[in-house]
Amino acid sequence: MDFWINQSFNAISYAGLLFLLGGGMTLIFGVMKIVNIAHGGFYLIGGYTGYFIASTTGNFYLGIVGACVGCALVGMIFERWLLRELSGQMLRQMLMTMGITLLIQDIIVIISGGYSYTLEPPEWCMDVLEIGGYYFYVLRILMIAAAVAVYILLWFVMEKTKVGAMIRATVDNKDVAQTVGINVQLVSMGIFCLGAFLAAFAGVIGSAFTEISPGMDFEVLPLAFVVVILGGMGSLKGAAVGALIVGFIDNFARAIFPELAYFSLFFPMVVILSIKPTGLFGREWL
């Protein structure tokens, strides 16, 4: 029983991290219709910038803010100068995001020397909380809290505000949205920045949680892909459910048969896609 409760808790907190990654990716996909391979690169930028800012200033919170804002700016530059002109051409966009990923990867190797780092979170995050005889790591609780807060905030913005309505209109039909006066390019840029922001946030938390190393981008990217595929592309709710599924499967597979952990992600994908090709909450417009 202890095993199940502890592992479930780990799975849920891991799902929090995956949601931050997959949520941004699913929004980018919904609005811009691109497979954003550079999402792993943003995770890497977040992790390294967060570590460097936090370790030089000694302030963990400044590291988080700096990494997220910095990464969003980087995302903005890429969107404006490299991706915008390729709008609507999926293969070229994908090659471009791959180029961007490699560019990020190499610049980070130059700056960091290719070492892996672990970010030291503040003391109180390292505490252990006792609830009903079980011990929970505060940092993991924070990860869950952060993901839930981001979900509620995004849900509120998307469903209850005018900006959200504009984004949803762009997701549904770009051309019509443009015709009714929505600045689709601005929406795309905003969403891309938001995605980069969230990925960087995940990167900082991830680097505090385990470590950040140059190969991490390609390690987390497939997980984000599976989250988005399972949940349905463009759906925030889907990303949350997908993150939970992947979090649980990955965590339990690692505990039970560690050697096949990664490959085991293939099976939920096969099962869900054969029942519903567009993912759990995906729409039929594809």
Binding site: F29, K33, I34, V35, M90, M94, L221, P222, F225, V226, V228, I229, M233, A261, Y262, F263, L265, F266, M269, L273, P277, T278, L286
Partner: peptide
């Protein structure tokens, strides 16, 4: 699936093989 979906599913499957 088709289009971008197809891209993403095939890529994710390839990543599973890598894993």
């Amino acid at each position: 699936a088709a289009g971008v979906y197809f891209l993403m599913i095939t890529l994710a499957a390839a990543m599973c093989v890598w894993g």
